[in-house]
């Protein structure tokens, strides 16, 4: 670092850190002002954070409408992944002929699920969670069964809401 160029001695009074009252003595008018500046600046900074957070937080994209598919597309004894917009659901047509639907989001950490025809299980690709056709956990880390969704049969259509 370069040497100070000016031989004048430093002025101690102006070297006190801003906003810190001199120890022990009653707060002077200057201390109060420094506090005020600090408080206002901090408030302004916090206020600026609000639009920043709103701007950066993901845009809410609705809940997504119902998912509709034809019953013929879900053969008996299989599970089909159906999507509508950004929403994915698993439609189960079990061996007894009943149609059920589950959210295609793994209850472990939110990964996508898919139907494994060989194992005849619903599998999560991330951490190996496995679910049966009834949505219950067969193995792996998922803490609970799949979220079941409402199924309506409208003619030959399956409507999942």
């Amino acid at each position: 670092m370069t040497q100070p160029m000016n031989p004048q001695p430093p002025l101690p009074t102006v070297l006190e850190p801003v906003g810190e009252p001199a120890g022990g003595t009653a707060p002077t008018r200057r201390d109060v002002m420094d506090y005020a500046i600090g408080v206002v600046a901090a408030t302004a900074a916090v206020a600026a954070a609000y639009p920043a957070v709103r701007f950066l937080s993901p845009v809410p994209t609705g809940k997504g409408g119902p998912v509709t598919l034809r019953l013929a597309d879900v053969p008996k004894g299989t599970v089909t992944l159906a999507t509508a917009g950004e929403r994915s659901v698993l439609v189960v047509h079990n061996d007894e002929g009943a149609v059920r639907a589950f959210s295609a989001t793994c209850p472990h950490l939110g990964c996508g699920l898919r139907w494994d025809e060989d194992e005849r299980l619903i599998r999560c690709g991330c951490h190996g969670g496995r679910f049966g056709m009834d949505g219950r956990v067969v193995s792996g880390p998922p803490p609970r069964a799949l979220t079941e969704l409402t199924v309506d049969m409208v003619g030959d259509k399956v409507v999942v809401t």
Binding site: V14, M33, A36
Partner: peptide, 28 residues
């Protein structure tokens, strides 16, 4: 509304800083 609140704060801060700077200069 948010703008008025924020600019109010900033204007206040500006005023305080100017005041302080004037006082600092005057005391010396």
């Amino acid at each position: 509304l948010g703008y008025y609140a924020a600019t109010g704060l900033l204007a206040l801060l500006f005023g305080l800083l100017v005041w302080k700077s004037v006082r600092v200069a005057r005391r010396r």
